[in-house]
């Protein structure tokens, strides 16, 4: 980070003041040239990892996320003999103060909240049916490992992770597994790949809105950058399914919010997710 010019220095000292003056001077356009309801460009790359069963790399502006799907074989639990397991892990970029305790704990907490949210969405939206992960009842099931590695965090991680998951699932194929009738051991045929079965109908996608107070009024910033997330009063996540049903709403504390505002946000989120869905299906 260079503190050479006035702008950088002001940003360093008081980010929210800098942001406000920028909006005043530039006719309500955000520092990266977008309007309040405009999203960043999306770049998609699929099947880039050779060791994974499915993978994708997504860029939302400068935010870069890699999603990888692999599987492990395991025994099912006694409670439900036919259901497999899913584990999601999100890894944020390690930054300079990684070694100091406080920052490290914060990063671990952020990682865990994000992974748990993503896992909840997968369960609640029934994107992946746990029974599809069954190889033989009571004997062997798949344990799905979904790893997200964030290369660069420039805000809006939630949207990009969920988008990356949708892309990766489309390009996932698993090896065929048969059970040896004599020894009950699985036989894995790594050459015979079959496309992974999941619920194509759902396509949960997220919209993140940063709520920013400007001129005594709440403004909703779609697709916020990390600076905007820092100065926002609160952050709102909407996860919608294909038929515009709400799968998850999450609002961080901060700003008091009326019901009408929620409706307004919902319609904004719906438009944004419609755009994303078009990009997904291109």
């Amino acid at each position: 980070m260079s503190l050479d010019n006035h702008e950088e220095l002001q940003k360093f000292i008081d980010l929210s003041e800098h942001y406000r003056t920028y909006l005043d001077e530039h006719d309500h356009s955000r520092p990266d040239g977008r309007k309040f309801h405009q999203s960043r460009s999306v770049q998609i790359l699929d099947s880039l990892l050779q060791h994974s069963y499915g993978s994708s790399m997504i860029r939302f502006g400068n935010t870069t996320v890699i999603c990888s799907i692999t599987g492990q074989l395991t025994k099912p639990s006694l409670k439900s003999l036919r259901s497999g397991f899913i584990q999601t892990v999100v890894l944020l970029p390690r930054t300079q103060a990684w070694s100091t305790y406080g920052r490290r704990q914060q990063i671990i907490n952020e990682n865990l909240t994000l992974s748990q949210h993503l896992l909840d969405i997968i369960y609640k939206s029934k994107l992946i049916n746990l029974e599809d992960l069954c190889i033989e009842e009571g004997k062997w099931v798949w344990r799905l490992q979904i790893d997200f590695q964030c290369l660069n965090n420039d805000g809006n991680l939630f949207d990009s992770c969920l988008f990356a998951l949708n892309i990766a699932l489309r390009h996932t194929s698993f090896p065929t597994v048969k059970i040896d009738p004599d020894t009950q051991k699985p036989l894995v045929y790594t050459k015979e790949l079959i496309p992974f079965q999941y619920n194509h109908e759902q396509e949960p996608l997220c919209c993140t809105l940063a709520i920013y107070e400007y001129e005594q009024e709440y403004r909703f910033l779609i697709d916020p950058t990390v600076e905007e997330e820092n100065i926002a009063k609160s952050i709102l996540h909407y996860v919608l399914l294909k038929n515009d049903q709400i799968c998850l709403i999450h609002k961080t504390s901060g700003a008091p919010f009326s019901i009408e505002k929620f409706h307004q946000c919902y319609s904004l989120a719906r438009d944004y997710i419609l755009q994303l869905r078009r990009k997904l299906n291109q």
Partner: peptide, 18 residues
Amino acid sequence: MEQPDECFDPLQFAVDLD
């Protein structure tokens, strides 16, 4: 959601690996 205790790498059981 509980997680299993023991997991096996599928390559352990691969039959057609050269």
